[in-house]
Simulated scan of single mutants.
Amino acid sequence: MVFDLEASGLDIRRDRILSIGAVRIEDLAIPLGRQYDRIVRAPGPLGLASRLFHGLTRADLERGTAPRDALAGLLDFAGDAVWLAFHAGFDRALLTQALKTHLSRRWDGVVLDLAVLAPMLFPDRARQLGPHAGLDAWGAVFGLAASARHAAVADALLTAEIALVVLRRAQQRGLRTWGALESAARAWRADRMGAGGPVF
C-alpha cells in the first residue's frame, strides 16, 4: 500500500494531518478502483500558505472525516500490506503521532521509502537529478506526472507509479521479496551515511 499525508506544516508535534491518500499495488499493477481518499476534519484556523499549497478551504476541513475515523479507515484499507511512501520518514512520524493522539494506539510499522529505493536502484538517474530530488523530479525522469500535486491521493498514485518502475528493477536485480528489498535499502543507506554523504 502506497500512502501520502498532507499536513498543515512540518512539525509533527504541532501540525495536523489535513488529508490522507492511499492506493494498493497488486501483482505489479495499481487497481484504480481501490483508493483511499479522505479530507480530515481539522478545527481552528489554517494559514494562507497551507490553504494555497493544499487547495483545501476552511469549509473542506470542517466537512472532513473525523481524525479518528479517517485514521482507522486507513489502517483497515492497509490490512496486512507492506507500506510504501516517498520521503517516508515524515509521513511515518506524522502518522505515528496521529495514531497515538486520536486512537491511543502505538504504531511501529515499517514503511519502505521510495526516496531511498529509487536512487539505490537507479544510481545514474540519481546522479542526474541530484541529492535533493523530490517526487516530481523522479516522476518526470520516468515520464510520469501527477494529475494534481499536493492532493494526497494524487501524490499516492504518482508514488505508486514510481514504485512499479522501482519494483520491476528490483526484480531484475534479484530482490524478489520485501525483506530482501528492505535489507538492501538499509545497507545502501548505511553505506551512504558511512561515506559521509546524505541519503537525500
Rank of each mutant, 00 (worst) to 15 (best):
A59S: 10
L61H: 01
A66V: 14
P67S: 14
A70V: 10
L75N: 01
D76H: 14
F77I: 13
D80V: 13
A81W: 05
A81I: 09
V82I: 12
V82Y: 02
W83D: 01
L84F: 14
F86L: 06
G89H: 13
D91V: 14
R92D: 04
L94R: 03
L95H: 00
Q97R: 15
Q97C: 11
A98T: 02
A98P: 01
L99G: 00
K100T: 09
K100A: 15
T101K: 12
H102A: 09
H102V: 12
L103M: 13
L103Y: 03
R106F: 15
D113N: 08
A115M: 12
L117C: 07
L117W: 03
L117V: 09
L117T: 05
A118E: 00
M120R: 07
R125L: 15
A126M: 04
Q128Y: 12
L129V: 06
L129Q: 04
A133Q: 05
G134F: 11
G139Q: 09
A140K: 12
V141L: 03
G143K: 08
A145V: 12
A151I: 13
A151F: 01
A151N: 03
A154N: 08
A154F: 06
A154P: 01
L158F: 04
A160C: 05
I162F: 03
A163W: 00
A163D: 00
L164C: 06
V165L: 07
L167K: 00
R168C: 12
R168P: 02
R168Q: 14
R168I: 06
Q172M: 11
G174Q: 07
R176W: 04
W178Y: 11
G179H: 09
G179D: 11
A180L: 13
